[in-house]
Write a protein that binds this DNA or RNA. Structure first.
Length: 480
RNA sequence: CGGGGAGUGGCUCAGCCUGGUAGAGCACCUGGUUCGGGACCAGGGGGUCGGAGGUUCAAAUCCUCUCUCCCCGACCA
């Protein structure tokens, strides 16, 4: 174990992840409630930053927020055959309330297609009511067998969009709009995590969907993490809940619905995409705190001088930088340096007596940990310098993650190469196999087809498993 | 749910095998000296050993049950 009790990534990646969660004070285990966590203030602030970036995009694409009940009549869940099958094993049920057994049990929502479907059936009558574009920010509960902080918890927070459209084409356009303009755009631009946009195979798609799409990101251990999904539900739920409208020709038509979601799992993605053995690394654009200032002084008169300079410098930052002055005097500067590195604040500014004499400050960038990332910068023009530095850190983190993914992506022409590749990262391979073939591969290698990328090579190839001619290239990986 | 590991001051862990009534380091509190990469000295407070039951004169220690966490696997945002 290194200092701070952070296990190096190279030694034990899973333990490293847990050490970061604990060290950066993101979450606590809710040990009295199985599989749940407490989002501590630092962790919750990350979620709020994620929420804000997504919410903006969700609204910019024409959606409105609403909120539906946490409890869903159990019978609702049963109405869509594949949906029940997919979710039944993991729902929690409320059987008693008010001291009595309920006539019909409720389930705690694992996702809200059914309850929202019920209301949409009441709200949609005419083609003029469409599209209906609603999003909800909510908590959901899934009784998973194995949980890990953020990546998979029994209760988690997410947003789920639920829309209704007049035609398959409209629903498909919506599904892809969300994938590109909301999810991929947010995760790449704000979280600095490159993603592969693609379609899910039948094996991996949402229970009850016609087609599922996802963005997949690579973590630093080469495994894939699904960072967001968008589903074209076809008419499955519209038929199950009788969501229908009268079209321009006065014909009654079943509508087409979509649903799409991202969850607090994104916090796990953030950790595993950028952090290092020193602690958490947060991209500046979503960092709740972008700059921390550590004043340095020995005597009272030095303290006053430092405080004065600090005040002059930071007054300009209001509204331009999210910053904090760490003026706790019970900790030494060295301690603070390490603590803020552990917590992932992108930039640290140190101001001490020597700086005041020279008219400089020390600036340390988190993406280059320790002394190598530290330099002395003139006080004049500091705000602009910091803004530029934050942008450059954002760029650098994205670039680094993209380079990592490229270096850990392999082309496989044979099953042997596929097996080897998924040990180390993503494998791109031609595919013409069946669902059964995919099951078999998962059994043998632990890997699944993460996505069928939307961007396909122009030429056809030979299926990595069956040897048949294949028209599509897929990405295999072991997944979280 | 199957296999493995672990629950002892806030944290990391020793003690358990060979029962005798709990210990270290860090953290915390007080005072002083420190402060540009995790400061030091002195003094001090804090745990009934995950929970329940059992064996025993006596249980952190032995037995049974149970809960929780971690790792691997199957399932999944």
């Amino acid at each position: 174990m290194a200092k701070d009790g952070i296990t190096p990534r190279s030694e034990d990646y899973a333990q490293w992840y847990l050490d970061i969660v604990r060290g950066a004070d993101l979450a606590d285990y809710a040990e009295v409630v199985r599989g749940c966590i407490v989002f501590k203030p630092t962790g919750y602030a990350l979620w709020e930053a994620i929420q804000s970036g997504l919410d903006q995009r969700i609204k910019a694409t024409g959606h409105q927020n609403a909120y539906f009940p946490l409890l869903i009549p159990k019978s609702f869940l049963m109405k869509e055959a594949e949906h029940v099958e997919g979710f039944a094993p993991e729902v929690a049920e409320v059987t008693h309330a008010g001291g009595e057994k309920l006539a019909e049990p409720y389930v705690v929502r694992p996702t809200s297609e059914t309850i929202i479907g019920y209301f949409y059936a009441k709200w949609v009558h005419s083609w003029r009511d469409l599209p209906l574009l609603i999003n909800q920010w909510a908590n959901v509960m899934r009784w998973e067998m194995r949980t890990r902080p953020f990546l998979r918890t029994t209760e988690f927070l997410w947003q789920e969009g639920h829309t209704v459209h007049a035609s398959e084409k409209d629903a498909e356009r919506e599904t892809l709009l969300i994938l590109h303009e909301v999810y991929a755009d947010f995760v790449e631009k704000e979280m600095a995590i490159p993603v592969i946009r693609g379609r899910k195979t039948e094996k991996e798609q949402f229970a009850g969907a016609l087609r599922s799409y996802a963005i997949e990101a690579m973590m630093q251990d080469g495994r894939a993490l699904q960072a967001g999904t968008s589903h074209n539900l076809g008419q499955n739920f519209a038929k199950a809940f009788d969501i229908a409208y009268t079209d321009q020709k006065n014909q009654l038509q079943h509508a087409w619905t979509t649903s799409w979601g991202v969850s607090t799992r994104l916090i796990g993605a953030l950790i595993m995409a950028h952090s290092d053995d020193e602690g958490l690394v947060v991209p500046p654009r979503i960092a709740p705190l972008q700059v921390v200032v550590v004043p340095i002084f020995k005597t009272d008169s030095e303290r006053l001088r430092v405080q004065e300079v600090m005040r002059c410098l930071t007054v300009e930052w209001q509204g331009r930088l999210r910053f904090k002055v760490d003026d706790r005097d019970q900790f030494s500067p060295g301690y603070k340096f390490n603590e803020w590195e552990l917590k992932g604040v992108p930039v640290r500014v140190e101001i001490g007596p020597k700086d005041i004499d020279k008219g400089t400050v020390a600036v340390a960038r988190r993406d280059v940990p320790g002394k190598p990332g530290k330099s002395f910068v003139p006080q004049r023009g500091l705000t602009e310098y910091l803004e530029g530095l934050l942008a450059s850190i954002q760029q650098s983190l994205y670039g680094r993650a993209l380079k990592f993914r490229e270096e850990h992506t392999y082309e496989a022409g044979s099953y042997r190469e596929l097996k080897d590749g998924v040990e180390k990262g993503f494998v791109r391979a031609y595919w013409a196999g069946t669902r059964e073939d995919e099951d078999k591969i998962q059994e043998e290698t632990g890997a699944t087809i993460r996505v069928i990328p939307l961007e396909q090579p122009p030429e056809r190839g030979k299926c990595v498993y069956t040897g048949k001619e294949a028209s599509q290239m897929v990405v295999f990986a072991r997944a979280y």
